[in-house]
Amino acid sequence: MQNKRKERIFLDPIFRNNPVTVQILGICSALAVTVKLQSAVVMALSLTFVVAFSNVIVSLLRKTIPGRIRIIVQLVVVAFLVILVDQFLKAYFFDISKQLSVFVGLIITNCIVMGRLEAFAMSNSPKRSLIDGFANGLGYGFILIVVAFFRELLGSGTIWNYQVVPQAFYDAGYMNNGLMIMPPMALIAVGLIVWIQRAHQQKKEEGK
């Protein structure tokens, strides 16, 4: 029973209750960083780290946080973690920090982080909050990577900056779809994933 619940905490955010496709959170960053697979992966990892650890910190503090200023406290914790990570990356992993520079601000404002703190960490143990944060980060990252995969493939003809569409295709008149690089296509791609997932889930629920 206990194990089953833990499994749910872990698996739900990745599929059945995905923060992006079901709760429609964190959409703006999903639009911004999915032009290239590489930036999507870096963003996914950083967000997973921040959600997981801010969840733990807030969960540890949850019994002391005054209800009236809890959002501010959560925000301070998130901003603290993000700046800390940023400083460490700048000192020890300069190349990664260069790629991340734009996204740091996006992590602080990502609704998933605040959403998980408010909905889960405030009322659950640190251990379960860690799992929850980790899983939500992965659920978010999963969608990001799927969207980025198609946008990079169709928009630039590359995967992870490697050319995958052969030159022969271009010679035969194939062209990269410039629209895929634009933000609206990210919205449409996310919309398609939401559609597929909901249709699939509905079928499953009706079959029950």
């Binding site: 002391t64 946080i65 200023i69 501010i72 406290v73 301070v76 603290f80 800390l84 400083q87 460490f88």
Partner: peptide
């Protein structure tokens, strides 16, 4: 509570910033 929180966070961040 908020004063302690802010002082602790600011302290740790400035320390990290100076060290790094």
């Amino acid at each position: 509570y908020s004063v302690i929180l802010v002082v602790v966070v600011a302290g740790v961040l400035s320390l990290v910033a100076v060290l790094l």
